[in-house]
Simulated assay, not measured.
Amino acid sequence: MGTLSLSDFKEVRIPAPWGHISGRWYGNRTERPILAIHGWLDNLGTFDRLIPLLPDYIGVLCIDLPGHGRSSRLPPGMHYGVDDYVLIIPRVMKEYGWSKVSLMGHSLGGIISFMYTSLAPHTVDMVISLDILLPSNMVPQKAVGFVAQRMEKHLVEEDRQEKGNFHEPPSYTLSQLTKVLAKGSLNSVTPEFAKHLLHRQVSKSQLYPDRFYFSRDGRVKFYHLTQMEAGLAEEMTKRIRRKPYLVIKGSLSPFVGKHCEKPIEILRQNNPHFEFYEVEGGTHHVHLHAAEECARYVVPFIRHHRPPALTSWSLNGKEQQLSAEEKRRQREKFFEISKNKRSKL
């Protein structure tokens, strides 16, 4: 068996009441794929370096969340939120007629995967979570101020969008964009890897030649991030039960922190299929800058919990040899039985 090719994909558009969900389906398109969901302000390009390391018998459907990448924006007056993003999973399942789903998520995508799995565990058969497990739990005083600030900025952005090109977003050269993206991610996405995200989230400026701006919906910067109180987090974790669940943490990242200790303990105690690994030196986008290290854990996990179907893979001609060998063994077994019967006569 080989690995997936980044050039072997089908562009997909999943219809939604507000427009469509854009995606790329890599690899095997005859069987149910892994549904991959990116992080906040990113897009499906975040998986560009991990995809070519995954086994080629599987398919991976990477989507852009609403307001991100090439997916449609929500209508004016609407607000982005994690609770609503969770509903994207059953929408995709309904589109393709899946009764089960395999999930792989980074950051926001991992939170969405956790919440959906805890709410509908009977429909999930596997989860891969990259540098995240569940939402943080800010102290109430800080959380209130945070939400109020985001609400105000959301309204400002909405007003800017209503005025159209008179208030076009700040534009940059492509070289500058890589640095802006790196700075915005606290250098989790270095300029070297920024290209994997930029190709789906920039548009050419209408005001300045040779400049580009971020084409994602500016309102997603101020989406509602669910604050999960410790008791609720623990109860939701218990609902996951024995579902295969892999968490990979970047050692330099704070996103799998103290608030995850009790949920991880619950998963370790109750779930024999739970795996947790830490990639040394890894930052939040650990799957992008340390793809090979992540693949060391992701690939065996996939092979164990989503093994190839007999009809979906090949041994490059060796299956015929195995078939001939099996026939030879059966003939020998038949002759041996016949010989024993004749000796008893």
Rank of each mutant, 00 (worst) to 15 (best):
Y57A: 05
C62V: 12
R91V: 10
H106W: 07
L65R: 02
G45F: 00
G77P: 03
S71K: 02
L74D: 10
S71V: 10
L103E: 00
S102P: 04
R91M: 15
W40M: 05
G105M: 00
R70E: 14
R73Y: 14
R70I: 12
R49Q: 13
G97M: 03
S71M: 09
Y80S: 04
Y96I: 09
S71Y: 02
L54T: 00
L44C: 07
D42K: 07
P55E: 01
G109K: 01
H106Q: 08
W40C: 06
G105Y: 02
P55I: 08
H68S: 08
P75L: 03
L74W: 12
R91F: 10
L87Q: 15
P76Y: 11
Y80T: 03
H106M: 03
K100C: 11
R49L: 13
T46E: 08
I63N: 03
L108I: 01
P66Q: 09
V92N: 05
I89S: 00
L108G: 00
G77W: 11
G69V: 07
S107N: 01
D64I: 03
S107L: 00
L65C: 12
I63D: 02
D48C: 09
V92S: 05
I51G: 04
D84C: 12
P66A: 13
V60I: 15
F47Y: 13
H79M: 12
R73G: 03
N43L: 08
E95D: 14
K94R: 14
L53D: 04
P75I: 07
C62P: 03
G109T: 00
G109Q: 04
L61N: 04
P76R: 12
I58F: 02
T46R: 03
K94E: 15
D48E: 13
L54R: 04
I51T: 03
P90T: 09
D83M: 15
E95S: 08
E95Y: 14
P75V: 05
V60T: 06
K94C: 13
Y80Q: 02
F47P: 01
V86M: 11
F47G: 02
R49H: 14
D48Q: 11
L61H: 04
L74R: 14
W98C: 09
P52R: 05
Y85Q: 10
P90V: 06
L54Q: 05
L50E: 02
R91T: 14
G81T: 13
L108Y: 01
R91G: 11
P75E: 09
I58C: 09
L53F: 04
L53T: 09
P76V: 12
M78Q: 15
P66L: 06
D48T: 11
I51F: 06
L41M: 14
S72T: 10
V92Q: 00
S107G: 10
S102I: 06
Y80W: 09
L53Q: 11
P75F: 08
S102D: 10
P66G: 11
I89E: 01
L50R: 07
D48N: 15
I88N: 03
F47H: 07
